[in-house]
Computed example of a mutant assay.
Amino acid sequence: MSIGAPEPSSFQGMMDAFAIAAPAAAVEIVLPAFTFGPSATQIARIIYMNQCNPGQIMMVGASWLQLAEKYIKAGDGLGDKVDAFDAEAWEGDDCSAFVDQSGKVRMQLFTIAAFAIEVGVGLFTIAALLAVMVTAYAALATVLMGMALVYWPLQAFPLTAPAAAAVRTAAMTIAATGLGILKTLDAGLEALGNGLAAFIGGGMTGSWAVLATQGNVVNPLDLVGPTAFNMANGFAQLALRNAAAPSGGRHVAGGLGHLFVGGQGAYNLGLNINDLAGNGDVDGKEDPRGTYGVDPGNLDFIPFVDTPEGESEPTGTWEKPTWADDPEPSWSGS
């Protein structure tokens, strides 16, 4: 059985495109945020809060679907092997016990596959809406940046000041209309994200219950360490991101937030351009995070250890404690 999982590499071009579009929009919106009033300042906040790469999310979603396919294939293969046994050559209590345990393992494999499909489809769903969001704000930021570049030279001379005022009025109208669209998309993303989180959480709970009935019981206490560790990392990152966010109101609030938006955009744009130039695609090989394990430009000061594919030694600066990793799965329930 096959679910037709796409190849993650098929989304590489999409990932490369959004690796340029999203940070470029963060750079472009800075001047309009200082030029065209409250709508542009709120657009800058939305761009900052939605910096992402939908192509990369789709690549991850495809990897989950491929994982599901592997588990389905393993379950089908196990079933075929069991069905191929010669009933006359092997029978009795040991045979019955083996067949029974094989059935439980198959159920575990299919349960994990079902959950992997759920996660993969969820990631594809959110990535599709994020692709619309990033495309919309990138186009809007480019238009407003172009109008700001036209406005300031016209504003500098008395003879062209009326034309500058006309450009400003048009830009503020475009910004207000674009902001309404982005707010709608942002609200949709929030609702969709919350819904998918609940959907995946429910699927995880259900899969744990099914696995437990098939002999693979997960002790919740084993998950306390990894869960607390990952939540602490996530909430720390979220707090820093929110603290550095630009004003979403009617005033620029000093402008430091908008300058950070542009600086972070320029930083990521440079990283991604170097990656494309050095390796032909965005894959992180030109990224200093792989060497130092931290990313100050994106407010990530939590080091990590990563072992690149094909390498035996990890990169990074810090070894996770043993309790930060999930224990090995127990397929037999032992």
Rank of each mutant, 00 (worst) to 15 (best):
F110L: 01
G61T: 10
S10Q: 14
P153T: 01
T291K: 08
A176Q: 02
A33C: 13
K104L: 01
D76Q: 03
G195Y: 02
T307Q: 04
V121A: 14
V132A: 13
G75I: 02
T291D: 07
G248E: 05
I126Q: 10
E328P: 07
T169I: 03
V210G: 00
E319P: 07
M231R: 12
G55L: 00
L65G: 12
L299I: 10
A138R: 06
A266Q: 10
T291V: 12
E311Q: 12
L67C: 12
V143D: 11
Q66T: 11
G75F: 00
V105L: 10
N242K: 15
F199M: 11
F235W: 11
E313I: 09
V210I: 05
L238Q: 14
A187H: 11
P153N: 09
Y137P: 08
G195I: 04
Y292G: 13
I20S: 02
D306N: 15
M147V: 15
L196T: 08
V134M: 01
I302W: 05
M133Q: 13
I273K: 05
T41N: 05
D326V: 15
A164R: 03
L140K: 05
G122T: 12
Q66R: 14
L154M: 15
L240H: 08
A89I: 06
T213R: 13
E118M: 01
E309M: 14
F124I: 13
A277T: 13
A212I: 15
G255K: 10
V99H: 03
Q12D: 12
F115G: 03
A176V: 06
A139Y: 10
T35E: 04
K320T: 11
F260Q: 09
